[in-house]
Design a protein around this nucleic acid. Structure first.
Lengths: 127, 127
DNA sequence: CCATATTTACGATTTAATTCGTATAATAAA
DNA sequence: TTTATTATACGAATTAAATCGTAAATATGG
């Protein structure tokens, strides 16, 4: 598979993508270290998952040297957009505003972040 | 299982919960009709899923008459809160604000809804 | 009452996700 | 060069989700 059309990573794949997004590129070992820090999992499991992700076209792989180097192909934003849209539909009756209310109401947000949101809100209101 | 501790419905279970939340209570037949409207699925599949959900404690069942009547036990809000929190962690690096920006930026929102969000924002800013 | 329709129960299959053991190749260290 | 370490490849087992067929029980219409 070449290009990613269906951006639908599984739970475990998302964990790996998280690491790849934060690092730009990484080896299986590096990804695994991060995962193993918070989760009990074997090295070959991480390896296998990353191989599958490569087959699916979720990540690219440079295998010019023995230790392969992986990068995320699917972008964080695209994935966010897709999964968020899905959640809005299946859990918030299609209303992004409801989701926003729930997110702001239940989670701590800093002044700076609130201001950022305010700016976006101002822009949207003008349209 | 009696009380729902782990609020982690699967994809299909969420679809069924959506119907139950919107109706307050419903039979398998009623739920199935709704699902079948937008999806190709057999009656016994819906039945089986609802039985499993009952085993898991996601729904309650009144089986005093032949046709059983189901209600959601897990609340919409609790489920939203749980899954949203999870998404914020696994996909938005723990930042609810990022999620909000993404949601507002990518999805149409009405003036009324924007005002609602503005009100909440005002409240939060004062704290 | 009899035939038809509806419902639940239950088991089995299929598909996908996750996990890991073992073999083999490549590299590094001694 | 031999030994130990580190990688990948691959197959297989496990688990969970989703799907549906069939049988039995119950209700309904004629």
């Amino acid at each position: 598979m070449a290009q990613p059309k269906n951006v639908k990573p599984t739970e475990s794949e998302l964990e790996i993508l998280q690491v790849l997004w934060s690092k730009e590129s990484a080896t299986v070992r590096e990804v695994h270290e991060e995962l193993a820090a918070s989760k009990d999992v074997g090295y070959t499991t991480t390896l296998k998952l990353m191989q599958i992700m490569h087959d699916k076209g979720l990540v690219s792989r440079d295998d010019s040297s023995k230790t392969h180097i992986y990068k995320a192909i699917v972008s964080r934003e695209k994935t966010q957009k897709h999964l968020l849209g899905k959640m809005i539909n299946t859990l918030f009756a299609g209303s992004p505003a409801q989701l926003v209310m729930q997110a702001l109401g239940n989670h701590k947000t800093s002044k700076d972040e609130l201001n950022e949101i305010q700016n976006l809100l101002n822009t949207l209101k003008k349209q």
